[in-house]
């Protein structure tokens, strides 16, 4: 298994919101990728956006500025 380290995890209410987020990030050149939601956050089975915590400000800025629908932001070892 890959080495665990501190990650920024952004969760969504629906897959549609995750898709909209991914599309926006790809177009805007924002870092990260979709992964299954870590069980340390929720035991559900949705997907989440994983990025480096150093990119948090840029991603939060995009969420605010472009009214992207997200559930919550976490920093967890994953």
């Amino acid at each position: 298994m890959r080495e665990k380290k501190l990650r920024l995890i952004i969760t969504f209410h629906t897959t549609t919101d995750a898709m909209a987020f991914e599309k926006h990030c790809l177009a805007a050149g924002l870092p990260g990728r979709l992964i299954p939601v870590p069980t340390s956050i929720t035991a559900g089975c949705g997907m989440s956006w994983m990025a480096d915590p150093a990119d948090r400000a840029a991603l939060e800025d995009a969420i605010q500025k472009d009214a992207l629908k997200v559930d919550a932001l976490y920093e967890v070892v994953h």
Partner: peptide, 16 residues
């Protein structure tokens, strides 16, 4: 729905 699997009710968000 592929999301919110431990909820006993359907997610309230559209389109799910």
């Amino acid at each position: 729905s592929g999301v919110q699997s431990f909820s006993k009710t359907q997610p309230v968000q559209y389109p799910t």
